[in-house]
Computed example of a mutant assay.
Amino acid sequence: MAVPAFDDNYIWLIQYPPRRRVAIVDPGDAEPVLETLGRTGLEPAAILITHHHGDHTGGVRDLLAHYDIPVYAPEDRRIPAVTHVVRDGDRVELPDLELTLEVMETPGHTLTHVVYHGDGMLFCGDTLFTGGCGRLFEGTPEQMHRSLSRIAALPAATLVYCAHEYTLANLGFARVVEPDSAALKARRAAAEASRARGEPTVPSTLAEELDTNPFLRSEDPVVVAAASNFAGQALKDPVEVFATVRHWKDTLD
Rank of each mutant, 00 (worst) to 15 (best):
L42R: 06
D126W: 00
E93D: 14
F129K: 05
A193G: 01
H113P: 04
H51K: 08
R135E: 14
V176Q: 14
R197L: 03
D119M: 09
V71A: 10
H56K: 11
A231V: 12
V85L: 13
T140F: 04
Y72W: 10
D90R: 09
H145E: 10
M144S: 12
G108V: 13
G28H: 03
V22C: 13
A174K: 03
E105M: 06
T201A: 12
L148G: 07
V241E: 10
E43N: 05
L122A: 06
E43S: 14
A157N: 13
A183G: 04
L101M: 07
N9S: 15
G125W: 08
D126M: 04
V71L: 12
S204W: 02
R61L: 13
R135T: 13
L168F: 02
E208A: 10
T57H: 01
T140Y: 06
D55T: 02
P238K: 12
A189W: 00
I151N: 08
I49N: 10
A225P: 04
F137H: 15
E165Y: 04
H84W: 03
P74Y: 09
F230G: 01
P18M: 05
A225W: 05
G172F: 05
L94E: 08
V222H: 04
A231F: 11
K249F: 13
R187M: 14
V25R: 02
F137V: 08
T83Y: 04
Y161C: 15
L99C: 12
P80A: 02
V176N: 00
A169W: 13
C162Y: 02
G108H: 12
P44F: 08
T110V: 09
T205R: 05
S218H: 13
I79T: 03
G132V: 04
E192H: 03
L48I: 12
V33E: 03
G134K: 11
L111K: 15
S147G: 03
A225M: 00
D62H: 10
H145C: 11
R20H: 15
G58C: 08
T251V: 09
G139R: 08
D62S: 15
A225T: 00
E43D: 07
T83G: 07
G89C: 11
V115N: 09
A81P: 00
P95K: 10
Q15D: 02
P74Q: 06
L13Q: 01
V223M: 00
G120W: 12
V223I: 14
K249M: 14
Y72N: 07
N170Q: 01
F215S: 01
Y166R: 13
P95G: 07
A153P: 08
